[in-house]
Design a protein around this nucleic acid. Sequence first.
RNA 1: GCGAAAGUGGCGGAAUUGGCAGACGCGCCAGACUUAGGAUCUGGUACCGAAAGGUGUGGGGGUUCGAGUCCCCCCUUUCGCACCA
Length: 848
Amino acid sequence: MDEKYFPEQIETKWQQRWGETRVFEAKTPDPREKFYCLEMLPYPSGFLHMGHVRNYSIGDALAWFKRLQGFNVLHPIGWDSFGQPAEQAAIKRGVNPRDWTEENIAHMRGQLQRLGVSYDWSREIAAHRPDYYKWDQWFFLKMLERGLAYKKVSQVNWCPKEETVLSNEQSSGGICWRCGTQVEKRDLEQWFLRITDYAEQLLVDIKQIEAGWPEKVLKRQSDWVGRSEGAFVDFAIKDGDKKIRVFTTRIDTIYGATAVVLSAEHPLLSELLEGSVLKADIENFAQKIKTQRTAGVEIGEGEKEGLNTGLLAINPFSGENVPVWVANYILMDYGTGAVMSVPAHDERDFEFAQKYSLPIRQVVAPASHDQLLAEPIDTTAGDASAEMKHSFIDYGVLINSGEWGGKLSEVALKEMAAYAKEKGFGEPAVTYRIRDWGVSRQRFWGAPIPVIYCPNCGMVPVPYEQLPVVLPPTAEFTGTGESPLAGVPEFVNTSCPKCDAPARRDTDTMDTFVDSSWYFFRYLDPHNDAEPFDTGIAKQWTPVDQYIGGDSHAVMHLIYTRFWTKFMRDLGLVQFDEPVKRLLTQGMVTNRVEGTDEWKAMSKSLGNGVDPDEMIAAFGADATRMFVLFAAPVENELRWSETGIEGAVRFLRRVYTMVWRWQERLSGGSGPIATDSRPEARALRRKTHQTIAKITSDFEQLHLNTSVAALMELFNQLSEFNADPAKASEEDVFAVREALEALVIMLAPFAPHVAEEMWEGLGHAGGLLSEAPRWPVADPELARREELEIPIQVNGKLRSRVIVSPEVSEEELRTSALADERVRAQINGREVLKVIVVPRRLVNVVIR
RNA sequence: GCGAAAGUGGCGGAAUUGGCAGACGCGCCAGACUUAGGAUCUGGUACCGAAAGGUGUGGGGGUUCGAGUCCCCCCUUUCGCACCA
């Protein structure tokens, strides 16, 4: 140990030693209990940013804590190295995406090592390497075998800037998740993965993880899956044998249906209009809506528009004829693409009916259960619709509904759906908002889709033994809408695995979210070339105990990975339903945008980035990490400030100096047990054990900011203890050693390098990490507050305090409160009405 | 528009979950040591008041001996969803 704290020197020394001793490499098997600590793997953009620093500092603190507690910890890292930025670099600057990516990885790996994150580098993976994406292709083929991967033409989300398709999850809100560009719609033939087959499980299994995941993430997931219960009902077209099937969640309102409304894309439309004089008009109208949508005009923006087709449909319940309309507010890809319009009981239908003067008929009346039971509603009452100013969307009691009149909505919903089924014109139904996952990307830098098209045999999967289908070294990066792979004849041209005839490969690549859906299983067995991972090894390590990352993936990555896990379960690779037990969504690191009052995520384009390398160079990795964890609760936004970090350096330096001053006196083994005769020594010991208890419990909830605060408090008390090492009594030495050693150990998750250095300085060889748990355990007797200071109130106002032992009885407290001089002065002859004694907390004397 | 969460010093934030509000840190003020201080150390720092004392957790009401914490109304901010039938 040097006299002075030189962060860079200490950090280099320990990073080197950790590398040599391979202390962070996880062993399988190992008798100790396992802990899988995982952070979302980074995209190798080239530079670490403060968001990464925060993410990995949180994970590393937990990994250290668990190691010190004696767990066998797995803490791996890898690279989400397929994706757009590499290809954009190729398009703009002519560099090869592979070279660009490898260089970025090399640089960022160096940055992570300089930050001193305790990763098991022997398990490092990268998605763009054939030994990784081979297994993406393997999974794809497994999905294909099971009918979970399929190809269809559909209207897909298209990012005009990146010239590629996006999944629904990646274009939520009509915005490209990566570049923020407004997405358009295009009709394309694409590969889809049948995530909708797992919709119900994605919902139901939330119960298994609700204790460990943030509520808001689960809410977003369940909203995204969007289950709704209702019924299909067929409206027969008058004069013909065609039927229009609608989906409704409110079959109880069907007597109020005054139109059937179709989406402009409805497939029956052109058939139905055969021979109609309105055919051309309607088709023009439908085309107009489609055009708007292609241009990215969101449904929901702008006014509702519709056109009467002139057709009539028959309401199967009432037998009534209602007009058939086409309108822009009906989504083709939800339900059946057709609805019954019930203006009286649906806001959107109400608005539509008002605009086009469609009749509005009330068929549900507001009613409480009490009213209904007391006094049946008169179902023959006249039409009240004329007065309706807005729709009534609540459940109630049915009126104007034939034989169903008088029933409660809740009851009618079930009975009417069952009746529809019995009569053959409908059935109860459940629909979901989630759509199948479109995974084709018209890009080069991804895992090729392992499929071959043969003129004789049609679509043929690449045989497993021919995997991986390897990306060619390069291609021409034009940035147009077709995959650059299509322009590489050596790649495209192949022979049919079945008949050997000349055939062509699929030239699209897979969405990068395929790579990240299962990567944390690959860490377990990263060099396996026979299977994605060994199921026995997986059983020992998974599920992930703690996952840490940003909440921008609340629906994208996290829903895909849950889906993928369920698929792997069905393949027999894993035995559980949910991959992650506990999830932490850390807050963003933001900085003020220059010249404004706005706080935004740090980014190059905004010019508000903070370079972690500069921080580390100026203050050291330890101080940088500790400050990031101390500055705000982990889930909060962290508004960057340059000044606060100096406090962290100051603290580390002070601790270091104190250890240096004491090291000689402390390093000679452990002294006799303290007798606690000196009150200050006993107070220090109490503080030590209270701090241990506090930090240990804070860690369970990842309250890292208050853990650091508690360390500072302990240090402050140590400073106040202020004994001279040379003259200190054995008792004092004992208290100081106990406090300092606990402080150093508990500092390790936040500032591991300097903690190791100080631990060594205190005379311990071999480093902080050992087989045996080293994390201190609080003595409950000492951790407890020794004396209680009980406030005494008179009529609710604080008048005095009394110091008592924790075992004090209620009666004793009452007596001593009433005997207190200041209390008696308050009472001053007035009547004592009652004395409230809250054990261990407070006494309140109530006087008249 | 719908839904959810949150409002505590100059700032980030604490508060054993109904019991001394403001821990810890930043910043600021004063002092010490210094050729110097943007280094270090010591002390102070919610607000009003000279003091005694009083007032304080977005605003208003309520429950309670006691409310930052629980209930009702309002305001503000942030986030999510946005024709999902």
